[in-house]
Amino acid sequence: MKDLAMHILDIVQNSIAANATEIAILMDVQSESQQLVLKISDNGRGIPENMLESVTDAFVTSRTTRKVGLGLPLFKMNAERTGGALMIESKIGSGTSVKSIFRTSHPDCLPYGDIAGTMALLIGTNQNIEFNFSFTVNQRSYAISTTEIKQTLDGVSVSEPRVIRLLKEMINENMLDLQSIKT
């Protein structure tokens, strides 16, 4: 996977497959410690305790079409390559949380990619799931939730192509703003 947006899209698919109805994506960037935290949490069915340790093994998967599941292993590899880590917490019946830490000073740290577009696409094509997205740079945050979006849209569906485009623009503008603030 060549950027963080692709990992977000990938891990969220896991959450959707686990029948999550609420998914939270959190990005926290600290310039001083040169650290980026990317956390994806859901209220899906959870990962059984005996599988939790081995779930980052490429040959451990809950998929039935293949014996290989590369999403988590690749994510872990990319985080660890920068000197970071991947932590997974889960409870059956409650949900799962995948937290990754990347060291942004490392040359192998992945670029963001099209995060706004990915969020807009996820929101627009999964109308029955509530998403919460927050992007924080040096303690300054931008957060948006589908609850607020749907309330604002007042009956207009999030799956309208124009809405998806607008959401992408909105999220992108706010993310760029936060990134351009000089501390």
């Binding site: 849209l153 309208e160 909105m170 503008e173």
Partner: peptide, 24 residues
């Protein structure tokens, strides 16, 4: 124009409501 806040989205909402026929 630029959509940056929920308020901006709300302004565009009226325009969108008129074009909802496909979704029905």
């Amino acid at each position: 124009g630029n959509v940056k806040t929920l308020a901006d989205l709300r302004k565009i909402k009226e325009d969108l409501q008129g074009k909802m026929s496909l979704r029905e």
